[in-house]
Computed example of a mutant assay.
Amino acid sequence: MTTTAFVFPGQGSQRVGMGRELVTRWPHLLDAYYRPADELLGLPLSELCWEGPADTLADTAFTQPAILLTSVATLDVLLRNGVRPTLVAGHSLGEYAALVAAEVLDWRDALRLVRLRGRLMAAVNERVPGRMAAVMGLDLRTVEGLCAAVRELSGQVVEVANDNEFAQTVVSGQAEAVDELITAARAAGATRALALKVGAPFHSSLMAPVEEEFTEALLRTEFRDPAVPVISAVTAAPVTSAAEVVDTLRRQLTGRVRWTESVTRLAGEGTDHILEVGPGKVLSGLCRRIAPDVPAHTTHDGDHVVRALELLAGAEGPVGSVTTV
């Protein structure tokens, strides 16, 4: 039996037009997801996904529900056509879509949570201006050492936020400290070190002020035990109960994304294929570098969804006209 891991992307994978091809090929998605999402949140999320503008779509408060909605719609097409995950994982925000795939969360509850999560995370930046930066060409231990040195000299916060792959690390913290880290990384031999266009210092201790309010929202939400194994990127280990899921989602706000370890764990479970479910293709690229022996595929547009169906479901004929109800 083929073992397929579904992985779900996080912020940064958004693009204007995402999901539009899905609705063209699979019209049931409009009434099943897009219109209900607009009504649930009280904003034109569908229009934002399909038409932009790009600067609004890049706003954290809108980006997070938009990516989740696109990922969940893509997931629906896969499931209806017989492609099901053996295990799942998500990168930061993507963990919510992974929990939908594992039947832990109803997609509507996930949408509400990520809308709140995005708004709270963006609000942090209004109180303590921060930023994130990507460092390429240095290993994790070196970047951790640079963060410690900058913290000691500046007295400001800069921490590892994402361990994305063996030679790509993202840092997060106060703006001045992150700028100093960029300079230090370049001096240490980084092939690239650059600030990212994100709305707040995600996955750092600066997010602690919103943890209590978000935890209250988590506790008001119904979670179920996973129907398929979920590898949490907070711990790079399986979460096996609803209570454990709530705890990892709480910790996710301030904790780093352990993506290298998580993908290594997926590969170690005997995974035959990794399928990135949702917009973008960055995550599948990271997976190929972490676990080069496991083929990684994307679903970032309608054609790639069809290819995934043909590969993983053995579909025959025009897949775009398969069951839609």
Rank of each mutant, 00 (worst) to 15 (best):
T2S: 13
T2N: 05
P9S: 09
S13L: 09
S13T: 08
Q14D: 14
G17Y: 10
M18F: 08
R20G: 02
R20W: 02
R25G: 15
P27Y: 06
L30P: 06
D31M: 10
Y33R: 12
R35V: 15
A37T: 06
D38C: 04
E39N: 15
L40A: 14
L41Q: 02
P44C: 06
E47G: 15
W50H: 03
W50S: 05
P53L: 13
A58K: 13
T60S: 11
T60F: 06
A61P: 05
T63A: 13
Q64Y: 10
L68P: 07
S71M: 05
V72Q: 09
A73Y: 02
L75V: 00
V77Q: 03
T86H: 09
L87C: 13
L87D: 07
Y96S: 04
A97N: 00
A98V: 03
V100A: 02
A101C: 04
L111I: 07
V114T: 08
R117M: 05
V124C: 13
V124S: 11
V124Y: 08
V128A: 13
G130P: 07
R131F: 07
V135T: 08
M136F: 12
G137C: 05
D139G: 11
D139Y: 03
R141E: 15
R141A: 15
V143P: 05
Q156Y: 07
V160D: 10
V160E: 11
N162Y: 03
N164Y: 01
Q168Y: 10
T169K: 11
G173H: 05
Q174T: 08
Q174P: 05
A175W: 11
E176K: 09
E176D: 13
V178H: 04
L181V: 06
A185T: 03
L194V: 15
A200D: 03
P201Q: 12
F202E: 09
L206T: 11
P209M: 08
V210S: 10
V210Y: 08
E211T: 15
E212N: 10
E212L: 12
E213K: 11
L219S: 15
R220H: 13
T221L: 03
R224T: 12
P226L: 01
V228H: 01
V228T: 01
V230S: 00
V230F: 00
V230K: 01
A233S: 15
V234C: 04
P238I: 01
S241I: 05
A242H: 03
D247M: 12
R251T: 08
R251P: 02
W259I: 02
E261Y: 05
E261C: 04
V263N: 09
V263I: 14
T264K: 13
T264E: 15
G268C: 01
E269M: 08
D272E: 02
H273Y: 14
V277R: 08
G280F: 00
S284L: 01
C287Y: 09
C287P: 01
A291S: 07
P292F: 06
V294Y: 05
H297I: 08
H300Y: 14
H300V: 09
D301G: 06
D303T: 12
H304W: 12
H304V: 10
V305K: 07
V306H: 05
L309R: 04
A313G: 11
G314F: 07
A315H: 13
V319R: 01
G320K: 10
